[in-house]
Structures are given as structure tokens and as C-alpha cells.
Design a protein around this nucleic acid. Structure first.
Lengths: 209, 209
DNA sequence: GTATGTGAACTATTTCACAGCT
DNA sequence: AGCTGTGAAATAGTTCACATAC
């Protein structure tokens, strides 16, 4: 079962289940059913069981899931505890907010480098990293074994930054620039397009009656 | 054709096409084919045609789409030019970054109110709005005709904030808190879960070989 | 000849529904 | 009796492929 193709959405939901089961464990509740988990996450019971089913059999017929076991299983599947080195390119408003974002450490991400093209920012310290010029990217990324690059530069320069990140050796990219980037097959890219989220809400407001 | 059910993803992609066709218009190019548009956006030509097809027939057989016309049509469909009032609840790092984010005005969103529960933040001015205590939310939202609420508070208080926003009259919510919120059917909610994006990348790194 | 618009085929994902375990 | 695990059915979304229009 484990090597069937797993939907993208399943992975994302697994993190939601983990969040929820962690809170349930903290309430000292020993078991939980797929229906309860579904209620708490606004998902169907069938969806919960199907998602978990991709990774094995964690439940007990008739009583549900042992919360501690399920938590441990999800943490194992999702690689909780592993840590990765991260670099941010572009230290504007969004970049700075990300650098100050406490969630980084919690998710096993160590910010080890920051780059910006504006010379007046060079040398400043943000979130524990010293801002370097873009030119130093390849060497710094290799030396510091960065595997995740975060792009928070304007759309115009995003592709160029992505290319440099990739040729320097990063394996995944979180792209905040509103641009469609071309990357090789083996590189994982996630777009977080805030403009588009806002625009989609605005579309909803225009088109509801 | 216009009243068939339109996939969520289609709307989102329409904004990508608009972004691209705008840049093409600025290059003084008069026509574009679905194949070219697909190349530039990393989507298939069929996807482009299908997406546009939900809203009418904009193309010319044999030559493609008139770029000016397509741009105008997309702007009309997507409600470009309309403006909406926005309130932010929670003025921490992320909230402040959003408030400073220039993209707001560009997308027709006017920040008209900001709220925080920390008394030492009250009265400060951010992005043109004065931070008010949460208690003043219902009145301020009604008075200022806010239709979009942005939640950037910790997960624990997100549901409560959402409830208050909704009872005060907002119609959509952009939720940055890592929590599954319950909202009535008629309210549009979009989750932007940065933690989950980061976690998903980390899952990818754990599970690639 | 070239590129659209769109049913039909295909693929992916979700929901159903129930046999089987405790 | 209650709840899981999972094929089968249903639904959603994407790609194909071609008749049609310029």
C-alpha cells in the first residue's frame, strides 16, 4: 500500500491531522475516531481514513485510533525532528517578516543565509543571519549546505534568482514572487502567491450575489 | 457556457493569464496563441483554452487572441478596478508585513482598520490605520464597511476572531493562522498556511531519494 | 495552413458503502 | 455494536483530438 501514488493534498492534510491529534493528546484523550478527527478539521471521516490508509493501518476496528500512536506515526511519516538549512533571497518587508517568523525553528528550518541586491542592506543582521550580496550566493549556499531557498524578490528578478539557487545546489524553493518560474523536474517548487489569494477573494466578492 | 460550474483553479489561473497578457501588451505584441500563453505560464495550451472557454469566446481561429482584447476581457471578468475595504486582526510580525505590503492598493484593497489585543500596541499607526482594541471590532467594521478580514493572530484565538469578524459583517476571510476554522456556507475563507508550506517542503526532502 | 472551441477520453481525487475485526 | 480499511462508484479536473473558422 505504501508505494501507491500519494495525492499532494493527502500530505498537506496529514499535517492538519498531526496538529489536531497533538492537541488531543495534550488533553489527555486516549483514542479518537476518524469521524471526530474529521469534525475537528472540517474533513469527512472517509477522507481521514483514506489519507491515513496510504501509510499503513493505524486504527483499531471498533474503537478508533490511539492518539499517542497516531501522533508518533504521523511525526515519523512527516519527518518531524529532521532539520534543514534555509536561505532567504530578498530582504524587503515580506522577507524580513519571514526572517522574524518564529515558526521556522519549530518546523526544523534553520535560517543560515540571507541575500539582497541593495548595497545599503548588506552586512545588516536579520533573524540571526548577515545579509550578503547576491554574488556570494553560490559559495555561501554550498558552504552552508542550504537545501531550501526562499524567494522574496520582485517578479522581474525571480527567475534569475531561482536559476542561481538551483545551480548553487538547493533542492526546493518556496516562491513568494508573483511569477511562473521554470525549474527542472527534480526541483520542488511551491508558489505562495499572496497577490493571487487577495485577487481571488476580490473575484468572489464581485461574483457573489 | 457561462453558467457551468467553474473550477477553483481556473479562477486562480485567469489571474496568471492576465499577468502574462499584460506584460505582452506592454511589449506591443498584438496577438498571442494559447500555446504561447501556455509556454509562458507552464501550463498546457488546452488548459489555457479550456479556462478561457468558461467565460466566452475570445480568440480568433487561425491567429489566436488579440492581446488588448484578452487583457480587457480578463480584467472585466476578474473585477479589476473594484475596491474593497480590509481589516487586519493581529499586528505581529506577519500582520505588520502585510500592512506594509504595497500589493494591497494595487489589488484594490484599502486597509481601513487594524486590531490587536495587546494594549501597548493600541493607538499606533500602521500602514495608514490606527490599531484599535479587539472590542471595537464590530462597530469599526460596520462603520467602515469592511468586507475582507485578515486573520494573523495565533491559532488559539483564530476561531474566536473569525466568529467576531463574521458577526460584524465581513464576507470573506484570509486566514494566516494554522487552524481549521468553521465558517458558515456563505462566507468565503482562504487559508494561507505558511507552516504547512514549509512542512510540505520538508516532507519532500525527507522522502526524495 | 494555423489555431480556436469543445465534446470525449482520460486521470486524479473524493465519497460511498460494506465486509471484517475487536 | 462500533469503527476501521478499502474496493467500487461518483465526481472533479485535465488532456486529447478534431471539426470548424479565419
Amino acid at each position: 500500500m505504501s508505494n501507491r501514488k500519494i495525492p499532494e493534498g493527502t500530505i498537506s492534510r496529514l499535517f492538519i491531522y498531526l496538529r489536531e491529534v497533538t492537541s488531543i493528546v495534550n488533553m489527555n484523550i486516549r483514542t479518537v475516531s476518524s469521524a471526530e478527527l474529521g469534525d475537528r478539521t472540517n474533513l469527512s471521516d472517509a477522507q481521514v481514513r483514506k489519507d491515513l490508509g496510504y501509510f499503513g493501518q493505524f486504527g483499531v476496528s471498533g474503537s478508533g485510533y490511539d492518539t499517542q500512536e497516531l501522533k508518533a506515526a504521523l511525526e515519523k511519516i512527516l519527518g518531524k525532528g529532521k532539520t534543514w538549512n534555509v536561505a532567504v533571497v530578498g530582504v524587503g518587508h515580506l522577507g524580513s517578516a519571514l526572517l522574524a517568523y518564529s515558526g521556522f525553528k519549530e518546523h526544523g528550518l534553520n535560517l543560515v543565509a540571507a541575500f539582497d541586491s541593495e548595497s545599503k542592506k548588506i552586512g545588516k543582521n536579520v533573524g540571526g543571519a548577515t545579509i550578503q550580496p547576491i554574488e556570494e550566493m553560490p559559495k555561501a549556499i554550498r558552504d552552508k549546505k542550504v537545501s531550501i531557498g526562499i524567494i522574496t524578490v520582485p517578479a522581474e528578478s525571480a527567475q534569475e534568482v531561482a536559476d542561481r539557487l538551483i545551480s548553487s545546489g538547493v533542492e526546493c524553493i518556496l516562491n513568494f514572487a508573483p511569477a511562473s518560474l521554470n525549474v527542472p523536474e527534480n526541483i520542488k517548487i511551491k508558489d505562495v502567491d499572496l497577490s493571487r489569494e487577495l485577487e481571488t477573494l476580490s473575484y468572489f466578492l464581485v461574483n457573489k450575489k
